[in-house]
């Protein structure tokens, strides 16, 4: 049976949601005005100037450019206004997030795997506290997916081979749809889940109920030894490799003279494509771990290196 009759519009429940809705309303009104005018004129002309209707058609074919110029500029101005409006809100949505509460999202055919930084993981669901921005770091194991929460008016593609961040905030408690919006194969339409927005206290309680095996960073530390990273990157190593303590978030001088901030993406690239950016003063000795670590493991490694950074 049809469970719910959805009305024309549910308001968005994120800070951007309100702006997007307003923009949508603005676009609708602008279009309604234009369409209204157009349909009115079409109807009017069709009735008035139908063949056989005796009506004054005296037509001295006045210069048409006057009209042309005016409607061209009118539409151009109207378009410009809409463009500026849309762009402003867009910047709002994708502004670089400061470091808040983070969750990691790994997309693969055909599920969403979410990991909270405490090590709690869930599948096809994302629990989050209300009114608190959380930053998602997303990666894909295989093809392109797209993380889409209609209620928040937010979406971002998850492209394999790179990290993508998205900052989301939900302002109302409830259960919302999570969709995969980029076509990704057989069960694309099954790659859905729900976003559960809870009171902050409830969320904390939920987190503690989940049994994290160990924190992601700790797991990362284990991997770090298991994969042999520590063989080079530890204090006693014979190989001249940079110390990773405190690297995260700092500027790193590179051998080509430039400097980059060691963020998630940089660490990730250092592991997968070590040659793309060589730290100044080191030989490009590090092997690529491309294909040897999964996205899940990568996340843990990155988190581990990040945790090293936190320790003074």
């Amino acid at each position: 049976m049809w469970r719910q009759w959805i009305p024309f519009w549910h308001p968005g429940v994120s800070p951007e949601g309100g702006d997007v809705d307003l923009l949508f309303a603005g676009l609708l009104i602008a279009s309604a005005l234009v369409l209204g005018l157009l349909f009115f004129l079409l109807a009017l002309f069709c009735v008035r100037y139908r063949a056989g209707n005796e009506i004054d058609r005296e037509n001295d074919e006045a210069k048409s450019w006057y009209w042309e110029v005016s409607w061209t500029t009118a539409s151009l101005l109207c378009f410009l206004a809409l463009f500026v409006w849309g762009a402003t809100v867009y910047f709002e949505i994708y502004r670089r997030p400061p470091d808040e509460l983070t969750a990691f999202v790994v997309a693969k055919q055909w599920m969403w795997k979410v990991q909270h930084s405490g090590g709690q993981s869930e599948i096809n669901a994302l629990h989050m506290p209300v009114d608190r921005p959380i930053r998602l770091v997303m990666a894909s194991q295989d093809v392109i997916h797209s993380f889409f929460i209609p209620a928040l008016r937010l979406k971002h593609d998850v492209v394999p081979g790179r990290y993508q961040d998205l900052e989301i905030t939900a302002q109302r408690i409830g259960h919302y749809h999570l969709f995969c919006a980029e076509y990704c194969g057989t069960a694309h339409s099954g790659m859905t889940g729900e976003v559960v927005v809870m009171e902050q206290a409830d969320f904390a309680a939920w987190l503690s109920q989940q049994t994290p095996t160990s924190s992601l960073a700790d797991e990362g530390g284990a991997l770090f030894r298991q994969l042999g990273c520590s063989g080079c990157h530890s204090a006693g190593s014979k190989i001249h490799a940079p110390q990773l303590e405190g690297v995260y978030g700092r500027p790193v001088p590179l051998s080509d003279g430039s400097t980059v901030i060691a963020d998630d993406k940089y660490i990730r690239d250092s592991i997968l494509l070590p040659r793309s950016q060589i730290a100044a003063g080191y030989e490009p000795l590090m092997p690529s771990f491309e294909g040897k670590v999964t996205e899940d493991q990568l996340l843990r490694l990155v988190l581990y290196i990040k945790s090293l950074g936190r320790q003074p």
Partner: peptide
Amino acid sequence: IGLFTIGGLTGLFLACLAFDVHATD
């Protein structure tokens, strides 16, 4: 004329960055 204009105007909706984030795909 009518249908093309409706289609074209909704194309503008999609060209509008913030709205496209929601509406794309």
